[in-house]
């Protein structure tokens, strides 16, 4: 796969993630979209590391580890909201608004 194709794919994944995040309201679906965006950037890191060298692969490893920690906390919050309050829609969160 050439570098251009890798970047195209990454851009496409990123765009799909952004689109999904802006249109979906279910927390789990939004989480999946964020994962798409994160993996798009990992793809760019790895593709460029192969193409031009540099710390890209290590960056991708760090990014993976950190985002796993992030998602763990996020899923815990989603689960808590679902069990205690019976929904996981993010928009309903603005009921705090006047």
């Amino acid at each position: 796969m050439t570098l251009e194709n890798c970047i195209l794919l990454a851009t496409l994944l990123f765009a799909i993630g952004v689109y999904g995040l802006l249109t979906r309201r279910q927390a789990v679906a939004m989480l999946l979209c964020v994962e798409l965006m994160l993996n798009a950037s990992n793809l760019v890191f790895v593709a460029f590391a192969r193409h031009a060298g540099g710390p890209g692969q290590i960056l991708a490893m760090f990014a993976l580890a950190i985002t796993v920690a992030e998602v763990a906390v996020g899923l815990a919050i989603v689960l808590l909201l679902y069990r205690r309050h019976g929904h996981t829609a993010v928009d309903a969160a603005s009921e705090a608004r006047e």
């Binding site: 927390a27 989480l31 964020v34 994160l38 989603v78 909201l81 309050h85 996981t88 969160a93």
Partner: peptide
């Protein structure tokens, strides 16, 4: 809890 979820989703978006 809803504030936590909202902050998380938008924070994860910003991180991505």
């Amino acid at each position: 809890v809803e504030a936590g979820l909202k902050y998380f989703v938008l924070g994860a978006f910003a991180a991505a």
